[in-house]
Write a protein that binds this DNA or RNA. Structure first.
Lengths: 161, 161
DNA sequence: GCACCTATCTATAATTC
DNA sequence: TGAATTATAGATAGGTG
């Protein structure tokens, strides 16, 4: 995407490599955020600076808290590629959710998706004061979790962390 | 980058959104790998599929093992150190969140129930089955939310995981 | 739905200030 | 040294079979 085609190999020139790094890192963050927004999916990106750099802080998207959450979720699923099968319970939940999602789409799809995103982000990021309405959301979630806990669960997966 | 300029917002059309998701995810993986090669840096990318998808397998680069390593490295960093350089992303998130909060306030009781269900689904979609430890974590989260509710906004970011 | 196509839009390499 | 500028390579939205 520039004046010349670039060979896909380590850039030996220090200045060029550093410039390229900063430019592409920025573009990458933008792309990841776009994907998350456009498609409403969860994603995270971690880019460490050069090893020789004094500041070894990584560029992260989205916020570190969110990233840590996604990363933890990833790490806690050593057998993640076997999640095809699901319990009757989970199936039921998915059906219900699917139905709910249909309703969502009929009403106010856009805003609703954004709301869910907001709620998840906010709860995890913990960056602001939650109002009563939010508390209700959280309470509702807690009830659901609690309910699920109290039901027999035939497919118990170990959590590594 | 196509026939038309795309609005940076959730794509409502299911087919379009899915196509875009697959295309961009692929492009993103390529970009991340290029950055790592060209600049000799460590980086990782995790992209989850739509929450309503049955297969909850995330797209991961580099290999899952490598990603887990980078993610672990990230998670093991001291908290404050991690937060330092996130100003831009945080501001971005906050702006988005502020806008979303407005919409959130307009929701009626019924829609709230749907949101909670969807949020719960997001958790379930990860394939996790909550156990007692998870419940305790959630309870802790709730306490924290409650605390925040009763205190003036400290504008302090905290890690809840 | 999926693979391929290509007009356009973006990202960015090289260059300039 | 770094912030613009510009020319191109690259990514991709909408279309086709």
């Amino acid at each position: 995407m520039g004046r010349k085609k670039v060979k896909l190999a380590w850039i030996t020139n220090d200045a060029t490599r550093r410039t390229t790094f900063e430019k592409r890192k920025k573009g990458l963050v933008k792309k990841v955020s776009e994907l998350a927004t456009l498609c409403g999916v969860e994603a995270c990106l971690v880019v460490y600076g050069p090893q020789d750099a004094v500041e070894a802080e990584p560029e992260v998207w989205p916020s570190p808290a969110e990233t840590a959450r996604v990363a933890t979720r990833f790490n806690s699923m050593p057998e993640m590629y076997r999640w095809r099968k699901m319990t009757d319970q989970e199936d039921f939940l998915r059906q219900r959710v699917a139905k709910l999602q249909d309703q969502l789409r009929r009403q106010d799809r856009e805003s609703r998706e954004l709301e869910v995103s907001l709620f998840a982000h906010e709860i995890m990021a913990g960056g602001r004061i939650l109002d009563d309405a939010d508390l209700n959301d959280a309470m509702g979630l807690m009830q659901m979790i609690d309910l699920k806990l109290k039901q027999p669960n035939p497919l118990k997966i170990q959590n590594m962390s």
